[in-house]
Design a protein around this nucleic acid. Structure first.
Lengths: 314, 314
DNA sequence: GTGAAAGCGCTAACAA
DNA sequence: TTGTTAGCGCTTTCAC
């Protein structure tokens, strides 16, 4: 007991005893057993982090943001790749519940509403990124894809682009639906609409395939709004292969603002979001919820339009 | 006790009882407490994964490989970003020991030999990626950077490049030293040597800065071997800014074979390694060690030279 | 200033 | 086939 008190710095022991205890602990390489501590306290100091795919550069930055705040507060991350599968999402829930994580940050959950709510019920605290549910179930960090997509649409319009195609991303993604709404909204105001919409996997390959398809069916399109930058890069590849000039023949705009967008040629215009901040915000919100504080239920991040070569005038 | 037996599928209970138990467990959303189980069994079914920087695309793929094998075997990953800091490496060791992880996979450890060995002693099982120590301390998955770098050097030579610069990566990286050895070896056999060697951070920015420096000091170099593909992309940026033609004026070759290498223009020649496999291999090796089997201590992966635009003839 | 008792949830060993 | 006991390492409570 005295040992416990000393090592936890709670004082209440004589200086000599304290010193002797610390000495011995050091000699025998004593490490407090987090499992025992967790069992007793019903707190594991571990938070689960779920991402669809860690190989998508959108997520590592979020994870870093989460980790930075977690670390400062003595939490560790149990990382789970969902690998874009609903089954796995459910399995993971069980695993994390068993591990008695203190909370979870779940990025881009694709589960249908009802299953999602059920899955979340096992947790003391949860924060969703890119998805929202009732505040009593989980906090949420949302990116305002609606306004972002509207910005993209109006930008292309302002360049004189009138025949717009859309790479719309995964059907099950809530963000994908919001982007489409934003585009409809913006174009509705302008008395027009998108020429073609194709859903696709949220990676470079998916973008390449979908853009090929869209260009085959609608060779005359002059603007392309993409679900994310990876899709946009895939579209760039297609254009290169088909000898379509970007931005002369086709303006392309992406989403997310990953660093890749600046590395390709032409550089990609995009709707940039600060992913590291999102990670930090989500973890802070989770910490509040773990502590029983429900200060903010929902934060909305507005993407920023960044103009680069892929939508330049020339 | 009967409950425990039934839920663990060990039989020895009547069908009715079993059914009833399962039913009730389900109703009350029972989840076995992994903390208690771990405390009792002295096994947490968690492995620690340390990477220098999850934002470097080299690592997410490794993590996916690790995770795939871990998942199949009922293990979870506690992910730790070292963020290129030695202090943090040591802190993390303590944390992971406290968490009673069953083992760790440590990628690109930068700690000096002695500290590394000391740090590893707290673990039942450990596997290093890109670093090696005595097999009794940890298993290792090594990439044969020496032969890879030699291949790169000989390739540039075969293109007629005679004035070679090197972006050498972080000084503390063992892999960096090996690359330099390989280059010296190859050039030694050809009766020449590298013109200039500059160390740098292992990211795009580091490559851009270092290549600028090297080109300022040695404007006449005609070949550049880079620590990794990110560095090489940084060098491409510099060349673009300085109006240096790649590959006409300068041949550039990278390392790792990340997907970015195919997305930039010109496409990067590189020494490709299968990162997903490395992850799988390292986790399998770790599982063996956790089980007390020491079948393989060390696996060496040979990088494969992939030729693309950045070192093409024209 | 120090320590003894008890219990967190689980399971190995041993009854009944 | 089922149940009891005990202990994993920690901390809360209470006694000395």
């Amino acid at each position: 007991m005295t040992v416990s008190r000393v090592l936890n710095g709670q004082g209440g022991a004589s200086p000599e005893t304290s010193e002797r205890i610390r000495q011995i602990a050091d000699e025998m390489r004593y490490r407090p057993n987090a499992l025992a501590r967790g069992l007793k306290s019903d707190k594991s100091r571990i938070v689960g982090v779920l991402v669809p795919d860690i190989a998508n550069p959108f997520f590592p930055e979020i994870i870093r943001g989460i980790e930075s705040v977690a670390m400062q507060n003595g939490y560790n991350l149990l990382l789970c790749n969902v690998v874009e599968s609903a089954e796995r999402e459910i399995d993971l829930m069980q695993i994390l519940e068993s591990q008695r994580v203190d909370g979870i940050v779940w990025c881009s959950a694709r589960l249908p509403e009802q299953s999602l709510i059920k899955a979340l019920q096992g947790y003391k605290a949860a924060v969703l990124v890119n998805r929202s549910v009732a505040p009593s179930i989980a906090g949420s960090i949302m990116i305002d894809y609606r306004s972002g997509a509207a910005d993209a649409a109006r930008h292309l319009w302002s360049l004189g682009r009138r025949r717009i195609g859309v790479l719309a991303g995964p059907i099950a993604s809530q963000g994908a639906a919001e982007r489409l709404e934003g585009i409809r909204m913006a174009f509705g105001g302008l008395g027009t609409e998108a020429v073609a919409i194709v859903h696709c996997k949220p990676d470079v390959g998916g973008g390449a395939v979908a853009s090929r398809q869209i260009l085959a069916d609608h060779p005359h399109i002059d603007g392309l709004i993409c679900y994310n930058d990876l899709n946009a890069v895939g579209a760039l590849q297609t254009c290169e292969a088909l000898n379509i000039g970007v931005p002369q023949d086709l303006s392309i705009i992406g989403f997310d603002g990953i660093s890749l967008a600046e590395l390709v040629r032409p550089q990609l215009s995009t709707l940039h979001v600060d992913k590291y901040s999102i990670g930090q915000l989500s973890m802070r919100m989770l910490l509040d919820r773990i502590d029983g504080k429900f200060i903010q239920h929902s934060i909305v991040i507005r993407p920023e339009l960044i103009l680069r070569g892929s939508t330049s005038k020339a």
